[in-house]
Simulated scan of single mutants.
Amino acid sequence: MSSGTHKTWVPPVAPPDHEAAIRLQEWLQAGGKSGIDMIGLDLSGADFSGGIFQESWFTDAQLVGAKLIDVDLYRSDAEGADFSGADLTRASLVRVNLDDAVFRGAVLDGADLVKASLYGVDASAASLRGTRLMGASLIDVDFRSADLSQAVVRENTFKVTVDEKTKFTGMSGTLFGPLQLIHRESQREIGGSDLERWLRERGGDIRVLDSRR
């Protein structure tokens, strides 16, 4: 993607926060040729749909309820960012650092998270329908009440927490367990062939790999 693309792109809705709006405007006026620094800024309620923010910094930023449809955050850092209720439909999050980020109730349908890092992420009640998760690090991720229907994995570490409301219909690929299942007031670990069977019972086409190989 050429840098000239940035010159014609304007956010459908600028960040309501004054400091964030000024930072974005300065970046656009400079041509958007390099990554933007949004560290710790409040971008909640903004609409950045279609924006290209490759190799940018959204560390600890607030993006609550933001629209990020079709955005490109390739190789960006969004560690600790809050995407609660945000719409990231078809977003490119390839190789993005999302450690400790919050995606409660967010929409990531059709998003590309190939080789993204998601340690300690809260994705409870998030929608990840058709999301590409191949090679992403999924460790200590909260997927309770999340929708992983049609999501695709490939040799993913899948040390996540789920519950009976988590959906796996049509999820496909390969992964390493184990996961933690929360059922009412109890919690149990499921791995190996038991995990593979459990996922298939819920409509997933998943092969669980042997972590000892």
Rank of each mutant, 00 (worst) to 15 (best):
R90M: 13
G135S: 09
L138N: 04
F143R: 02
T131G: 08
D112L: 09
S137Y: 11
S84M: 02
A81W: 01
V94D: 07
L113A: 14
D109S: 02
Y74A: 11
L108K: 00
D77H: 11
L88W: 09
Y74D: 05
L88S: 12
N97S: 09
A91Y: 13
A101I: 06
A111K: 00
L93Y: 09
G120S: 03
L133S: 09
L113P: 09
L138P: 06
S76M: 12
G105S: 07
G135E: 05
I139N: 07
A146K: 04
S124L: 08
F83Q: 00
M134Y: 07
A111D: 10
V96D: 06
A123Y: 14
S127H: 12
S76I: 10
A126I: 06
A101Q: 04
L113S: 15
D87Q: 15
L113Q: 07
D140T: 12
D142H: 13
I139G: 01
R132C: 15
D142N: 14
V141W: 11
I139K: 10
T131Y: 06
R129V: 11
G80Q: 09
R144F: 13
L113R: 04
L98Y: 13
F143S: 00
A125S: 10
R132L: 13
V94N: 07
D72L: 11
L88C: 13
Y119N: 05
S145H: 15
Y74C: 07
L93Q: 01
L128V: 05
D122V: 07
M134K: 15
